[in-house]
């Protein structure tokens, strides 16, 4: 078992045994052997199952919000101890964003950070695995690690090497924050960040508006509106979402006041119009807040390249306002801040 695994397990075990955290969010090995599965450890024994290897794609910061949404039982005292969480470099920015926006205070989260050389794109790895005709059953003992430009899979005492560029997530190839920006404890050596560039956007930016329209029309036509992109997003934490309401549809007797109180930007129907509406509303809400963890892109069951949008937004916000979110815990928000010396007298 790798040293990184041991380190993570030891930290989590100690925290839980000493009662310093109420629970610890981390990854365990998934049933198919390739992937890892997000889980909540409530006892030191459960923490013994944790893994930290290149299969840990999940951004655990998404699970923080559940603590806020849980309704206490009658007579139940709230547990005020911090939540333990395992983060990679990209995830740490999501946690920092939540602290910036006062969803959590810094002392409410105990952050165990890990420096990261990239995580694998599990479907791609599986495909490569099958292509080479490697034994499927062997995945029960599979261990992954990254060494330079290679992803090494060891199983049954054997080793199989894959080119890193072929099997890691696209998002890791342009990652500028492989090292956690905030943490209480750190695992691993500092990793060199990738250069500041947007090669992944070139193709889209070269399209004419008409081509771009056609491209996104085709992409959004397959959206099933499962809302996984929203649910997995660590920056989406509203208790009730404006695109998913349980209130009855408007009838002829619905008054304007009622309509205002129940604003619904897009209907439940996955038509082209509503799909555009939903995705664009989401992007607007993310402007200057998205930390580009790339989870929305990963979870999409029909493969909509949402990351093209978030990356473009990131690029525009940086070029226009020189702003990047989730880099520290100081309250800073691109679109919710007002400065008295603002040259544009403004709306206040």
């Amino acid at each position: 078992m790798s040293a990184k695994n041991d380190q993570l397990r030891k930290i989590a075990r100690t925290l839980l045994a000493e009662g310093k955290v109420k629970y610890f969010l981390g990854n365990v090995r998934g049933a198919d052997g390739f992937s890892s599965k997000p889980t909540t450890a409530r006892t030191p024994e459960e923490a013994n199952e944790f893994v930290w290897d290149p299969s840990c794609v999940n951004n655990m910061a998404s699970y923080l919000h559940e603590d806020k949404k849980r309704v206490l039982k009658r007579g139940e005292e709230p547990d005020t101890r911090p939540i333990g969480i395992f983060v990679k470099g990209c995830d740490s920015r999501s946690v920092a964003l939540n602290i910036q926006e006062h969803i959590f205070e810094r002392e409410q989260i105990y952050i165990v950070g890990a420096t990261c050389e990239g995580v694998v794109d599990v479907p791609k790895l599986k495909k490569a695995w099958m292509k080479r005709g490697l034994p499927v059953a062997a995945t029960n003992t599979l261990q992954l690690s990254i060494n330079g430009d290679e992803v090494i899979a060891s199983f049954d005492g054997k080793q199989e090497k894959f080119a890193k560029d072929d099997v890691i997530m696209q998002r890791c190839k342009v990652c500028r924050y492989p090292n956690p920006v905030i943490y209480d404890e750190l695992i691993g050596e500092q990793v060199e960040p990738k250069p500041d560039a947007y090669p992944d956007l070139e193709e889209m930016e070269a399209m004419s508006p008409a081509e771009r329209w056609a491209f996104w029309t085709e992409q959004f036509s397959t959206c099933v509106r499962c809302l996984a992109c929203r649910n997995v997003c660590p920056a989406c934490y509203c208790r009730e979402c404006s695109v998913q309401r349980s209130n009855p549809a408007f009838g002829p007797r619905t008054t304007p006041t009622e309509k205002m109180a129940k604003a619904q930007f897009s209907n439940k129907t996955p038509t082209m119009e509503d799909n555009f509406n939903f995705h664009m509303s989401r992007m607007y809400h993310m402007t200057g807040r998205c930390t580009n963890c790339g989870e929305c892109n990963r979870v999409c069951p029909v493969g909509i390249p949402l990351r093209l949008l978030t990356r473009k937004m990131d690029k525009d916000v940086r070029e226009t306002y020189d702003h990047e979110s989730g880099l520290d815990t100081e309250p800073k928000n691109l679109l919710a801040e007002y400065d008295d010396d603002d040259p544009e007298g403004g709306f206040l």
């Binding site: 998404s62 099933v224 509106r225 499962c226």
Partner: peptide
């Protein structure tokens, strides 16, 4: 680990 997205059902 469930994020409540509904992919499994849709």
């Amino acid at each position: 680990g469930c994020i409540g997205c509904g992919i499994c059902t849709l």
